Computed example of a mutant assay.
Amino acid sequence: MPYFAIHCIDKPNSFDLRAETRPEHLDYINGFADRILVAGPLLRPDGRAMGSLLIMDFEDRDAAIAFSAGDPYHKVGLFESRSITNWHKVLPA
C-alpha cells in the first residue's frame, strides 16, 4: 500500500480544544494502528503542540482523506489547514 503524509496545523489559540479532544483522537488513531508508520504532534519551540503529522498506509488517497475526515480533531474544527500528500519511504531501508 502507498504511504500518505497527513500534515495538519492547528488554529491559533486552540490548545484547550486540542487537550479536550485528545482522548477521542487517540482512540480513533489507535483503531488504525496497523496502518501507522509514524504519528505525533508538531511542536512549537516551547514544546506545545501546534499541529499533527501522521504517515500512514492506505489503499489510495480517497481512503486517506476519509480517515482524516473521521478524526475527532478534524470534526471539532481544530485545524486551520490540512494537507494529504503521497509519500515514499526511502530510509531507513
Rank of each mutant, 00 (worst) to 15 (best):
P2L: 09
P2Y: 10
P2W: 11
P2V: 05
P2A: 06
Y3I: 09
H7A: 05
I9C: 07
P12A: 06
S14E: 04
D16L: 15
E20K: 09
R22F: 02
P23G: 11
E24Q: 07
H25Y: 05
L26M: 15
D27R: 11
Y28W: 02
F32N: 08
I36T: 07
L37T: 13
V38R: 03
V38N: 12
V38W: 08
A39F: 03
P41S: 12
P41F: 03
L42M: 15
P45L: 11
P45N: 03
A49F: 01
G51L: 07
L53S: 00
L53D: 01
I55V: 09
I55G: 04
F58G: 02
D60V: 05
D62V: 06
D62Y: 14
D62Q: 15
D62N: 15
A64W: 02
A64E: 03
I65A: 05
A66G: 09
S68V: 02
S68Q: 13
G70F: 12
G70Q: 10
D71T: 01
D71A: 00
D71S: 08
Y73S: 02
Y73N: 03
H74W: 08
K75W: 13
V76F: 10
V76N: 09
F79W: 01
F79G: 00
E80I: 09
S81I: 01
R82P: 14
R82C: 14
T85K: 09
N86P: 13
N86E: 15
W87L: 11
K89C: 10
K89H: 08
